[in-house]
Write a protein that binds this DNA or RNA. Sequence first.
DNA 1: ACTGCGACTCAATAATGTTTACATCGGTAA
DNA 2: TTACCGATGTAAACATTATTGAGTCGCAGT
Lengths: 202, 202
Amino acid sequence: MKVKDNSVNIQNAARKYHHGDLRAALVNAGLELLKERAVDDLSLREVARHVGVSATAVYRHFPDKQALHYAMSQQGADELGASQGNAVADAGGGMPGFEAAGRAYVLFALANPGLYRLMMTTKSSADHYEMDSSAMGSAMLLLKNCVAEVLPPTASALEHKVMALHAWSLVHGISMLMLDGLVAPDGEVIDALVTMPISQLA
Amino acid sequence: MKVKDNSVNIQNAARKYHHGDLRAALVNAGLELLKERAVDDLSLREVARHVGVSATAVYRHFPDKQALHYAMSQQGADELGASQGNAVADAGGGMPGFEAAGRAYVLFALANPGLYRLMMTTKSSADHYEMDSSAMGSAMLLLKNCVAEVLPPTASALEHKVMALHAWSLVHGISMLMLDGLVAPDGEVIDALVTMPISQLA
DNA sequence: ACTGCGACTCAATAATGTTTACATCGGTAA
DNA sequence: TTACCGATGTAAACATTATTGAGTCGCAGT
């Protein structure tokens, strides 16, 4: 998320002093470890060790552990957004696109349990009360677009909001229930939930 | 919040050696602290301190910290179930009861952020893949009953399952979004989500 | 070559979860 | 009553953690 990168001279490719973009390396290592550990079993020191750097080096790039978590969360949200974007494009937009986005959301959560939990647990720094901003920004935007494509042009802003909320609540709910082992991760059930109620809302 | 108190003879009232039902006291202290702290900022030692007992005493009643969490989670689920039960009864069952249960669920989550997060995060010990068992047992049962009251008698088992899943996913989703500050906790929005889609499903 | 500053290391601190060995209470059986 | 024993609690110790502060190293521009 660093902004400056107009460099042209030798060995640029971003700030690269001793290590070579430690910040990104830390985030990636963290995401890597999150594939096998739960977030509570993931220590700052272990991430640093995994990158081959002293534990305190982390503090040159993040004010504290939570900040690292937030960065990881953001990158996860980007991946999720990209995955959903592809799904929507493949489905050709419209209502099938909407449903595909929902499926992609749940599948992402099931494929990345630790990361998904982190994404939903990590508090956005301040009080937002806006569906944009937050780490889930890009995914949110996509959701809004899907809603806009599905609802008739006469629909009110409230209707848009409620439909978006409904869809998000639904996919988040199934995801968590399946991650927690309360519901078997059955593709047919996912399909049933993602398609049925949405089409009735349109 | 103490439950058992049918005592007739002198100082029985369950196992009470040095302290007097430490286990319950620890769970209650944990729940108390969860009202103001997040679960990650809640240490075993602090709970013990709050009860006025050594930190290692906890291990006479719980094998580890997670077990304490699980016990707290269970008690929270019971409270939630009771709250929903009252709501259903007040609404007189049927579809209004179903909606009332949904509202009660979301309101519980908003009133107990730390506890609710704990309840959803705490993994049930083994792999269940059953919507019963788990800490959310009583709430689950209530949900099933509501669904049974609302669906026609001809509905298949799958339809029951999907409708229950849909409802739970929905209320859980709104709850989390509001707890995370992504959506303002507006009672009207809650009502809109809880009532509208369910009635369309019936 | 010198200097400054950004990126990193080392050592230390307070706090945590958990284990081990020990103390104490209360009921049971002699 | 008295001696015991297991359930319950304590104290000390250990490994690990997040975070801080005082340094060290090396690239950049002068």
